[in-house]
Design a binder for these strands. Structure first.
Lengths: 147, 147
DNA sequence: TTATTACCTAGAGTTATATCTAGGTCAAGT
DNA sequence: ACTTGACCTAGATATAACTCTAGGTAATAA
């Protein structure tokens, strides 16, 4: 069973353009061509593209994904390098998750205010503080017109 | 107490260029200028910039951050819109976290292989499968030279 | 007074990641 | 034989988000 670029686009949810672009960037050296030069994808090619998507979706840059693919093409001798690369990327992901959770706290605190029954009162009080702070420092306030 | 753009760059970890760029994009309409046209930041300006950073760091586009800032400038009448915007963005963040955790599983499964005592054996076996799959489909294999 | 330093703007340049276009090949169906 | 449709490449264009440059102002220190 083999797949066309169209099939792979459907399966991976990448556009055909993007698949060709990835190939051009050296991310798909494992994909074979038939005698007319058309790409023919196997099951394991799709698996490898899924891994590429996983790395991409977790924020790895294409040039770094290429590094990983190059290691894979080189064979079992690069296992230590691949492991190193994945450990580093794993840490990146953990940091991203932590950062998102951290930022979520601020979002939630804002949402709490917006959802409060006296939201307007709180917001107006906050605006007053901003206004006062500007005035104390002799600064023209953008809020002047609307307060 | 007021701050210069340099101070703000240090506090927010944005570059001075980026702060000016954000201003140009309409993200900082609340920042005052002195009579020479130099930006003067207050404590609450910095708070608002922190919120901007929070939105940016969780993947919100600048044009959408601007929408939020515009709501804020407009006053308490836009609380419902702001809430809507934040609820939608909150969901975005949750999706991001879920996606990262999902992808982490694949990374960890790869790491498990790389960390196994017989990693080389497993990798070589996987390469053999890829090779066979290509051969079965009459495709030239990029792995041929190195296997 | 002069030099330095921090700031300003407008607009050019950069980077990463696509996305699209033009012009062409090839196999299958009518 | 001819048309259609899916594929190909090289290279142009797009987009977001910076990042930098040139040329200028204004306050401060020597």
């Amino acid at each position: 069973m083999t797949y066309t670029i169209k099939d792979v686009a459907k399966i991976t949810k990448l556009s055909i353009f993007t698949i060709r672009y990835y190939d051009k960037e050296g991310l798909l050296p494992f994909v074979s061509r038939n005698k007319s030069g058309i790409r023919v994808f196997t099951e394991s090619d799709i698996n490898q593209i899924m891994t590429i998507c996983c790395l991409k979706n977790t924020g790895m840059q294409i040039k770094d994904i290429k590094k990983y693919i190059d290691y894979c093409m080189e064979g079992a001798g690069t296992i230590d390098s691949r492991k190193e690369l994945f450990v580093a990327h794993r840490n990146e992901i953990i940091n991203q998750i932590n950062s998102l959770n951290e930022n979520l706290k601020l979002i939630d605190s804002k949402l709490k205010i917006y959802s409060s029954p006296n939201a307007a009162e709180i917001i107006n009080e906050l605006r007053r503080i901003v206004f006062d702070e500007k005035r104390e420092n002799g600064l023209p306030s953008c809020y002047t017109q609307i307060n």
